[in-house]
Design a protein around this nucleic acid. Sequence first.
DNA 1: AATCCATGGGACC
DNA 2: TGGTCCCCCTGGAT
Length: 547
Amino acid sequence: MPFASSSSSTPGFVRRTAESDEESETSSSDEENGFEEEPPVEEVDAAEEAALRKRKRPPPITISLKKVCKVCKESGHEAGFRGATYIDCPKKPCFLCKMPGHTTMFCPHRVAMEHGVIPAPEKNTKTSLDYIFKRQINDKIPKIKPEFVIPDQVDCGLIRFHSRRITCLEFHPTRNNILLSGDKKGQLGIWNYVKQLERTIYGSIHSCIVNNIKFSLGNDAMVYTSSSDGTVNCTDMETGIKTLLFDLNPEGWNGPATWRMLYGMDVNIERSVLFVADNFGYLYSVDMRSNKHTGEPILIHKKGSKVVGLHCNPVLPDLLLSCGNDHFARIWDARRLNIDSSLASLAHGRVVNSAYFSPLSGNKILTTSQDNRIRVWDSIFGNLESPSREIVHSHDFNRHLTPFRAEWDPKDPSESLAVIGRYISENYDGVALHPIDFIDTSTGKLVAEVMDTDVTTITPVNKLHPREYILASGSSRTILIWKIKPEKWKTKTEPERKQFIFNNTEKKRHGKVDSDSDGDSDIDPKGRRSKTKKCQSKCTKSGMKKS
DNA sequence: AATCCATGGGACC
DNA sequence: TGGTCCCCCTGGAT
C-alpha cells in the first residue's frame, strides 16, 4: 500500500519536506481591492509614454482621462483580477471558447463550480436547489455506456526537489511507488512517494527540457528520455549512468535554424523500436537492441513545424499516432512509413498538444488542442473526418507553461475518464486556483476537480497511475501526489461532480474546519459546510514547515 | 523591489 | 516569406 498505509491520519505522508518550498506562498494574497491600488491616471500615462519612447515610437496623441483597460487600452472598463476573479476585456473574444460576443464569465461552456457545465447565465437566476433538482432528474436518465469510477476522497502530498518547472511525469512500470519526473533544465528525478525522503535527481541527463520519459519492456531499470537538446538517453535508474542513443545535434549549437529538438517519443514494444520526432516535422526510428538509428528520417508533419507528440497503439503497436504544430494529428502504419502515407489526418483548430489512443482497446483517440478543445474520436475504424465530440476546456497556454495534455485514465474499463489541468482560474473562497479536471469524455461533463490552496500555480502535467488510484501532477517546480482512496471510489453512471480543495494553512482553515473530522476540512467554495464530505486536509500543524 | 527575459505561437502587415 | 507586436494566471536572475 502506498502512503504508508497507517491510520486515516496518514502521519507518514508529510506534506512539507525539508528545503522544499519557502517561496510557494508568494501569490496567495487575495486583496479584494487591487484596482484601488493602481497609480493615478497621470502616472499611468507617463509610464506608458516612457515605455513608448523607449521603444522609439511616436507618443500617443490622445490623453485619456480615465483608467484604461490593460488589454485593449480603451477606457470605460478594465480587465484584470478583481480579488480572485478575473474580469475579461469585453472587447476581446471569450478567453475560454474563443467566440466573440461574450466574456469568459458568461461563456456557455464555462466550467462554473456551482453547476457543472451548465451555461453560466443561469448562475444568477437559479438557486442551488434548482441544480440539485436538475441533477436528480439527470440521474434518472439511463446510460448505455459502461460504468466507471470517480474519486470520492483524495489525499495530497507535495514535494519540491526540481529546480525548474516539471515538464513530464511517468510512473515506474513495475514498482508501484516510484515516480519519475523531468524538468525544464534537463534533470531527471526519481521519487519514492511512499518513503518521502527517498529521492534522487540526476542533473546531467540532458542539457535542456526533458520532453518524454519512457520504459522498454524487459528491462525496467533503464529509463529512456528525449529532450529539446536533440538527444535520446537511456539511463540506469540505480547508478544514473546514461547511454546516448541518439543525437540530432552532433555539431553543437549553430543557431535556432539548425538546432533540432525532440518533442515526441514512444516505444513500439513488439518491435523494440523507439520513435522520436523533431521540431522540423521529421520522424526517426531507433532500434533498441542495437541502439542504432534505422532508416531515413521521414517527414510526418508540415516541413519546418514541430512534431509535438507520438503514441503507439496499445493493441496494434504498428499504428502510430502523431500530432504537431501544423494543427493535425495523423495516424500512420509504422511498417510502411513514407511521406504522404498517413492513414488519417485529424484536423484541429490550432496546435495539437497531445494525441493518445485509448489505453485498453486502442480504438479511441483523445486529443488536446490549443483552440481550447478536447476532441474524442470514438473509433479509429469509423469515420475520422470529424471528431465524435469536442469538449470546450480551458487549456490555452503561453510559452511559460508546459503544454496541457488530456490523458486517459488507464484503469477505466469504459475508456471515458480523462484528466487535464485547467488554465483559467476560479475563485475558490477568495483564492484564485487552477484545478485539475476529471472529465467524462463520453459526455463532456466535468466529474471531479482537485486543487490545493498551497499550490496557486497552474498544473499542466498530470499522470494517472496505471494500476493504483493515484494521480501525479507537476505544477511549476512542485510535484504533487493525489491519492484517491480506492475504498472510497464510487461507481456511478451519472457522476456527481466532486471538488477536492485542500485547505492546509491555519489561515485558510479559519472558521471552516470540520471539528469532528480530525483536522479534515469540509468546506465548499463559499465557505459553507457542504452536504457531502468533499475534501481532506492531511496537513497537521506539526507536519508543516513554517518559515 | 522592480525589471528583464526565456529562444512560443499567432495575427497582421 | 519575414518582421513586429501582442499575450490573463511564470519564475529565476539581476
